[in-house]
Design a protein around this nucleic acid. Structure first.
Lengths: 248, 248
DNA sequence: CGCCGTTTTGACACTTCTCAACTTACGTGG
DNA sequence: CCACGTAAGTTGAGAAGTGTCAAAACGGCG
């Protein structure tokens, strides 16, 4: 399986830029070049590496490829005409994105980290059974994640949103692991490395950058977390944070 | 194909009740009784009718059936432990629901109207290819709808949310039909019959019942809409309302 | 006709946003 | 290696939007 390095990655529509510029459908060039290679079962599949902050596709682009994240994270977001942005999903390893209802993508896709993707021809996803089953499971998981996120956006306070977000970032640890008893089952290092900027977090949580910053500072003052660096957060009280998510 | 009338439908967890009572996983009884009938291709399928405000399933219930709406509307919602509710989706005709990532349902399902459902055995949806393709398309559409709803919940004002909601309720009319020119392509009657109570609308839009009421009153004062009855709304200015959705 | 649940309206409180200034972190070039 | 410039993040004060609580109005149904 050939890895295709390409040095074309330009810095895509960044957070700050996205706030002010409204991106219109035409005249865009995503950071993915189409160099297809034959694959097993006569399907066209390839693996692709992208730098951080690369654009995979724009809203409105014709959707003829489907992507699976092998490694790294991809952010999906939508823009309102006046520049307001909402990050609608963050796609991690083993998850799929770029599946449209119609002919075009409904949102923009941008890498949050260095990313390795598996790229499928869209037609194959519609004809090959084993791929369909996989996509099906990914879509169901995505729907559930979006349901949870709707609860977060519609009903949770800023504190609860940030706490939920930080929790989500702890590797191998879910809110379900906490039963409110004060003892956590997960034994991770409780060390988070954020791949998103404050602006991206804010746009994901439906808040402003200032509110996110204030809440994180407040958590720090309360001793729940410590900031080793701006994007390196240590969770001091897993249960203390968990109690603030609103899920218990 | 046999329609099975059943008179067992009790009034499920209603909006007001759901606000105060937290629903725990055990001891529930949904309004659907399992009477399976043999169907073509050796799959177990049946058609079922339910009254308004019937419970299809609860969050945490074992998910061994998948549902397709033939006629009517079903509401999916989640509850936080303190009673806050978020309606995560409203499922209309030809759409599918009850597809879980794991073994149990991630949300509650309740009918908004009299509903006719087609009920599948879950195993069939995993093995039969023609069903998978259909489910796949439904899931993709659902993901896009949830993306849109995330934008609404995360980035739109109360006015924009209610305007977007009313627009969504106009049959055969989408926000895309409006280009801001003042002329609307869709030629519907501009008459809406709401199937949701104010509480349900509020829980769908991430607002309070009072805010929803106030916004509707304000739209009425501005002449954008008229209320023939509380749940019968006439849209006087389609474009005026459209301009308030934030989508243009 | 009167009751009860839903909706509307009002006054006020509180959360979050906005705007502005300041601080910190990071990369470049001297 | 340090100084500088720029971008990112933090903090503060005030404004705006939405929530909360309470009361009144409305609508459906016995």
């Amino acid at each position: 399986m050939a890895y295709i390095e390409h040095g074309l990655a330009m810095t895509g529509a960044r957070a700050s830029a996205a706030r002010t510029e409204s991106l219109v459908a035409d005249g865009h060039k995503s950071d993915i070049e189409s160099t297809w290679h034959a694959f097993s079962h006569s399907a066209r599949v390839r693996t692709q590496r992208l730098d951080q902050h690369s654009v995979v596709f724009y809203e409105g682009d014709t959707a003829n490829r489907v992507f699976e994240v092998i490694d790294g994270a991809v952010m999906l977001y939508k823009l309102l005409p006046d520049g307001r942005r909402q990050v609608v999903d963050v796609i991690g390893a083993n998850d799929v994105f770029g599946l449209p209802r119609g002919l075009t993508h409904d949102c923009n896709a941008e890498t949050l980290t260095k990313v390795t993707l598996r790229v499928f021809d869209r037609k194959d996803t519609e004809t090959r059974v084993e791929v369909q089953g996989h996509i099906n499971r990914c879509l169901m998981a995505q729907v559930e994640k979006l349901h949870d996120h709707a609860v977060l956006l519609g009903r949770k306070s800023a504190f609860e949103r940030v706490a939920s977000f930080l929790f989500r970032c702890i590797p191998d640890c879910k809110t379900d692991d906490c039963d409110g008893s004060g003892v956590h089952k997960c034994s991770s290092s409780n060390m988070i490395t954020l791949t998103m900027t404050r602006q991206e977090i804010a746009d994901y949580l439906g808040l402003t950058i200032e509110t996110v910053s204030r809440v994180i500072s407040e958590f720090r003052r309360k001793g729940l977390i410590s900031l080793e660096k701006q994007d390196h957060i240590r969770i001091n009280s897993l249960c203390g944070l968990c109690r603030m998510t609103g899920a218990h």
